[in-house]
């Protein structure tokens, strides 16, 4: 059997995404980037997702604190609640939840927007007018998600910790100063930095997948819908896979 003749849709898709990613780096390294479009995308990705991220992070912080309290109470470790909640939120829950929200909102948005531009020949029109559509549409969006998801994640961390503060004070009483002292005392450099670094990868994956699915959309409006849906699915899956890899790397580096 000739190994080069195996036609697996999964391998084909993986190959296409790899080619798309390498084209991104090639185009991104060229001069004359579209800075104005990039800033506009940062606004759309960052500012327009901020409310959703804020509300979700707040609720996650509040709920996690409320639900963790009875277990800690059982062991007489209620005082450890701020420390436990902060480590859980900052290391894992907040970055992943924020990335999943971004995969849902931004990934699907990019898939649908570029898909619609593809099927209505707007991308072809750009090419005909002498503008490089890959640089204009893809490079700007991928850079925007790569830079904005970490910002959103940091905001998510802060808001979820505030939610945690309110959660701690629903049944008990911990002062503002004591709560934040316990939070920062529990968090170390090894908690915050890997968590921040992995969000850059989450942002990159969300941008690349959203743009890839939209840019290569086919089969009319049905294809646009499919692009948006598969962008969310693949980006969400990639977030979990990257998270798993990040945990393993952090563990290997002794940052746990």
């Amino acid at each position: 059997m000739d190994i080069f003749k195996i036609e697996s849709p999964f391998l084909k898709e993986a190959g296409e995404i790899s080619r798309f990613t390498s084209r991104f780096f090639k185009e991104a390294s060229k001069p004359n980037q579209e800075w104005e479009v990039f800033l506009n995308q940062c606004f759309w990705v960052g500012y327009k997702t901020l409310t959703l991220v804020g509300i979700t992070a707040f609720i996650i912080g509040l709920v996690l604190t409320i639900q963790s309290r009875p277990t800690l109470l059982e062991f007489g470790a209620e005082s450890l609640l701020p420390a436990m909640v902060s480590v859980s939120l900052v290391r894992e829950i907040s970055p992943v939840i924020v990335a999943l929200i971004c995969a849902g909102k931004i990934g699907s948005g990019m898939g649908a927007e570029l898909g619609s531009m593809r099927v209505t020949e707007q991308i072809d029109a750009m090419e005909v007018s002498g503008t490089n559509p890959f640089k204009y549409l893809v490079v700007t969006r991928v850079w925007a998600t790569t830079l904005m998801v970490p910002v959103l994640s940091s905001v998510g961390n802060a808001v979820s910790l505030y939610g945690g503060y309110l959660g701690v004070n629903i049944r008990g009483h911990v002062s503002w100063n004591l709560y934040w002292f316990q939070v920062f005392d529990a968090l170390s450099f090894g908690d915050v930095l890997p968590s921040l670094i992995k969000t850059f990868f989450f942002g990159f994956a969300i941008g690349i997948v959203g743009c890839y699915k939209g840019y290569n959309s086919q089969k009319g409006t049905e294809g646009v819908g499919r692009s948006a849906t598969t962008a969310v699915i693949v980006a969400s899956l990639l977030v979990f896979i990257l998270d798993l890899i990040a945990v393993q790397v952090t563990d290997l580096l002794g940052l746990t």
Partner: peptide, 30 residues
Amino acid sequence: RAKVGFLFQSNALYDSMTVRENLEFPLRRH
């Protein structure tokens, strides 16, 4: 391509831009 215009069947107007921005778009490169 600046010397060859193309009118697409679907018109291919950029739907997130105004008419003015649509018309200005080809000028940005040339």
